[in-house]
Design a protein around this nucleic acid. Sequence first.
DNA 1: GCCAACGTTGGC
DNA 2: GCCAACGTTGGC
Length: 166
Amino acid sequence: LSEPGARRMEERVRESTVHRDRKTLNFPTHMPWLVKQEPSAYSWDDFVSDGRTAWTGVRNYSARLNLRAMKVGDRALFYHSVVGKSVMGVAKVIKTAYPDPTAEDGDWSAVDLAPEKALPRPISMDEIKTIPALKEMVLIKNSRLSVQPVTEAEFAAILKLAAKKK
DNA sequence: GCCAACGTTGGC
DNA sequence: GCCAACGTTGGC
C-alpha cells in the first residue's frame, strides 16, 4: 500500500475506533481491549508459561490503531479463535506500542503483554451471544478484528459471567 | 472443509 | 475515486 493510501485508510479507520474517544473525552482511566489468537499459534497456556510476550504480527490498520491507543496498565481479554472460541483470561499491557520487529516492510506496531489472571472458567462465544448486554461486542460484530476495543460494561460483564458457575 | 464477510489491490 | 476481483480469516 502506498503512503497516501495508508494515510487515507488510517483516517477512515480512525473515524470508527475508540481511539477517538480516548482523545476527545480524555478518558481518565484504563480502557479494556480484546486480543485474539489461535491457540495452535499461541495459546493462553503458552502466554502464562512465558510470563510476558511481544504482541507482534498484527497487519491490519484498525488493529494497529488499537495497539497504538493502548496504555500501560490497560487490560485485554485474551481470546482463543477457531479452536475453543473462548475468552481465556485477562492480560495487562506492560509496554506501549513500538515498531513490530517481525515486520519485513511497512509501519507496523507491537505492544508487550503479560498475563494477569485466568478466568475462573472460559467464556465461549456461544455463551457471549446469549447475553443481551454482550451482543454488540466487536467480537460478535466484527470477529475478524484481531485487536478490539471492549467497553467497560462488556469487560465487567465477562468477568462477572466467568465468576458464576454455568 | 465450506464459504461469508472482510480488507486490500488494481484496472478503469 | 469507484468497484470488481482476490486472498485471508474464522465461524459454522
